[in-house]
């Protein structure tokens, strides 16, 4: 039973990783940028969600506010930071992105204090269900539900809507898409908007799950998000989802069996390195 519980906990983490990593892979697929600053969007979502929840007592409002704030910040980062340096070598955008992350992490610390804030009334955290001897709380249930809902919505959007088709066309061939009348700039904003909405919602959910929102919460999850999109084969959406769930489960088992040897983050990156040595193009990536 213990092993099934570990699997379940791993899958829940995998779902949060998926919400984070999908956005990262979208940005990479379109612009070839490793968007580390997504962590900032994630943390902003968490703080806005927490503040709204604690002031109004409504989690629904908290999610809406978090999504709005995150949805504004992501495209703003694109416009102010990435757009002017798109033609520079790739490490330029990466270093700029890390700069945003480091500066904003310190900014959150100065604004809200180093030790983090908790939800005043976290009923999702305290509501638990027993299922065949295992205990899950409502946050974990919602994380899975949110991941399934949002990612399905994205799949429908990409497959069925006009904007989705334009988006896919731009990812596969920007010049061809442009000559067929697709507004490439609009697609980029849309891309950052989707990525940021997902990150903002994931931020609130992780805040609820730990019942803690702190300045550094986005950093590690964002680094792991990068590991996941590399693992999935950069820019590959199905690969990213598979890698997210797989990494969640590997971490979950690893942190029990390898606890004396290395910590959770090291397990994730060790797994990444081993997979890449065997398959340098990632799990589902195409060979060069």
């Amino acid at each position: 039973m213990f092993y099934v519980e570990l699997l379940l906990v791993g899958l829940v983490w995998g779902c949060t990783y998926a919400m984070m990593a999908l956005g990262l892979t979208l940005v990479y697929g379109l612009l070839r940028i490793l968007h580390v600053a997504q962590a900032t969007v994630f943390t902003l979502g968490a703080y806005v969600g927490l503040l709204v929840a604690n002031h109004t007592g409504s989690l629904a409002l908290a999610f809406v506010a978090a999504a709005l704030a995150a949805g504004a910040l992501g495209p703003l980062i694109y416009r102010l930071i990435y757009q002017p340096i798109l033609d520079k070598p790739p490490f330029v955008a990466l270093v700029a992105s890390i700069g945003v992350l480091i500066a904003m992490e310190d900014g959150f610390r100065l604004m809200f204090g180093p030790s983090g804030l908790s939800f005043a009334d976290n009923t999702w955290f305290t509501t638990t269900y027993s299922l065949a001897g295992m205990v899950l709380n409502l946050v974990q249930v919602w994380i899975v539900a949110a991941a399934v809902l949002l990612l399905s919505a994205f799949a429908v959007f990409a497959a069925r809507t006009r904007a989705g088709v334009a988006w896919r066309a731009t990812v596969s061939d920007p010049q061809m898409a442009e000559s067929f009348g697709v507004g490439v700039i609009g697609v980029r904003y849309l891309n950052f908007l989707i990525a940021s909405l997902l990150a903002g919602v994931a931020g609130v959910l992780v805040g609820l799950l730990n019942n803690l929102v702190e300045p550094g919460m986005g950093g590690v999850i964002s680094y792991k998000g990068l590991a996941i999109i590399v693992l999935g084969g950069l820019g590959n959406v199905p690969g990213t989802l598979v890698a997210s769930l797989l990494l969640g489960v590997v971490e979950s088992y690893g942190s029990v069996f390898l606890d004396r040897v290395m910590d959770r983050d090291a397990i994730a990156f060790l797994f990444l390195i081993i997979v890449l040595m065997v398959r340098p193009q990632g799990l589902l990536g195409k060979a060069h």
């Binding site: 790739p90 990466l94 290395m262 090291a266």
Partner: peptide, 21 residues
């Protein structure tokens, strides 16, 4: 390239995570 950047980042986390334990 980008794969290498993430692998070297991973090497850093691996070193830290192993030494800590």
């Amino acid at each position: 390239e980008d794969f290498l950047a993430i692998v070297t980042m991973g090497v850093g986390f691996l070193f830290l995570g192993v030494v800590r334990k």
